[in-house]
Design a binder for these strands. Sequence first.
DNA 1: ATAATAACCTGAGGGC
DNA 2: TGCCCTCAGGTTATTA
Length: 269
Amino acid sequence: MPELPEVETTRRGIEPHIQNQIIDRVILRETRLRWPISEQVAGLAGRRIIAVTRRGKYLLMQLDQGHLIWHLGMSGSMRILPQSAAAQSHEHVEIKLGNGLSLKFRDPRRFGALLYSEQDPLQHRLLSNLGPEPLENSFTSEYLYRCCRSRKAAIKLVIMNSQIVVGIGNIYASEALFQAGIRPARAARRISKPRCARLVDSIREILASAIDQGGTTLQDFTQADGNPGYFTQSLQVYGNKDSCHHCGTRIKHLLQGQRSSYYCPLCQS
DNA sequence: ATAATAACCTGAGGGC
DNA sequence: TGCCCTCAGGTTATTA
C-alpha cells in the first residue's frame, strides 16, 4: 500500500507526538513480519526518540541509543492513540510513550518490517543501495536518462526500481506516466531526453501533490489520526476501468511484473 | 549486470 | 450463505 507519499504522511502525523518522548514500554503481539522482530526491540523501554525521518519508503526513528527501521509493506499503517484504546486486529506492535499516548503499528498482511540497528541506518544493507530521493535535487533528468539508456526494460519497471529512484510504487508510477504522456510498457531506452525530463517533473508533481493531500487510501491506509488520504479522488488512471479523464478514450489495463498498469492509449505513447 | 518469476501473508469482492 | 477464485500501495531471493 504505502508509497512515498503515504510514508511521508505517516511520518508527519506521528512526529509531533513521539519526538522527544521516552519509550515506557514496547508490546510485541506478533513478531512474524517480513523478518522476525528482534527481541532487542522489546527491551527499548527507557530510550528517548530523538528524530523521525524517512528514506524512500522506510521510516527511521533515531533513539538516544540505536535506531528503529520500519517498513509498512503492502498493508501497514501507524496510528497515535490513547493507551486506553483497545488493540485492533493485526496490531502487531505498540509503543507506549511517556506522554500517555501509544504508537500502534497495524499490518494485516505482515509484509512490513521493524528492525533495530545500533549503526547508522542509512548504512544498513537494506538501505545502502537505494537510489536518490525523487523530491530532492539529486534526482535529475540527466540521471534518469542515463539509467534509461542502457535498459530495455519497461519504463514503469525502471521508475519502480528503488535502486534507481526510491518511493514510487504501483499507483504513482501509473499516475506519473499518464501525466508525462508515456506508455508504461515503453522500453526505457526508447525514451528521449526531453521526455525523461518531463517524466521527472511529473513524478515530482504527483508525489508532492499526494503528500499535500495526505496520501491515497484504497483499503488499509490511514493517516496517523485515522483519517483516509485524499489523493484517491485525484487519481487519473490507476484503477480507472472507464474512460480517460482527459480525452474520453477507454483506459487500457495490462500486467507488468505481476502488477496492474493502467494507461490511456491516446494520451500516452 | 539485467531481466523474469516465485515467494512471503491476509482480506475483500465477484461469480456461481 | 458459502466456497473458490482473483486481486491488492512491496520487496527480496532465486533463477535464466
